[in-house]
Design a binder for these strands. Structure first.
Lengths: 119, 119
DNA sequence: ATTCTAAATCGCTAATTAACCATATACCGT
DNA sequence: ACGGTATATGGTTAATTAGCGATTTAGAAT
């Protein structure tokens, strides 16, 4: 129990607002298709902003902004290389979350007779 | 391969926008603290709107609205009982998602020397 | 029917934000 | 220094939405 002092032990029923807010923040990061597309693109290899812009169907400004959001939350890391900036996944846990949502959606889809995705 | 015809098989690299949007929609549902609080409250037992209003610190109108959103997405079911309406979890998978986010946050928190949550 | 209670809906405001265009910054080659 | 390329930022717009108070709808009980 090393961290006992700093550990907040909450009752079974009452859950602190702050905890819910942190959870919500993570979900919110993943609640935009463009950001999910960025994560998916970076899954297997780091890429420069330009590469991402070429792949995703949106403006350079928008890609840059979404990258910043993910970077600011430490989901992505960045490495400058000369003229370009390469982004990489720092938090692979996000893919586990996506996979779990896919399973959830597929479970539902089965009831309608078709399988839909795999990320 | 029963569902082959209706199954969309996508290439390794290109991911349909629609899939990302559906994923994003699920994450968005979970991206508000009030909705997470509702889910947490309902985890162990169905509750009426009134009970939820008494527990959560927000207006009846707001609770009702958030319940509707979760209901419309089939995360919750409702059962009328006389004067009251009871809501219940229809999609327990959401708790798995919350737990995974907690683990993700805890992994990060460990680097700062404290454990934070458990939902 | 009337009253009481429970839940849903309406109208509104304030805050957030994705996406765009235009501009600025920064780095490289010449 | 200068031009070219890559990325970031500023400013704006349009859309979404959480939350509130007020009202409406619906059921229960008298």
């Amino acid at each position: 129990m090393k961290n006992a002092q700093r550990t907040k032990k909450q009752g079974t029923d009452e859950l602190q607002r702050g905890v819910l807010e942190r959870l919500a923040t993570v979900f919110k990061l993943l609640s935009e298709p463009t950001r999910l597309a960025i994560l998916h693109e970076l899954r297997n290899r780091s890429q420069s902003v330009g590469e991402l812009v070429a792949t995703l169907g949106t403006s350079q400004a928008n890609v840059s902004k979404q990258l910043r959001i993910l970077f600011d939350h430490s989901i992505l890391g960045r490495k400058q290389s000369g003229n370009q900036v390469f982004y990489e996944i720092l938090e692979p846990g996000v893919f586990g979350l996506c996979a779990e949502v896919c399973r959830l959606l597929n479970r539902r889809a089965e009831n309608n007779g078709h399988i839909q995705y795999d990320i």
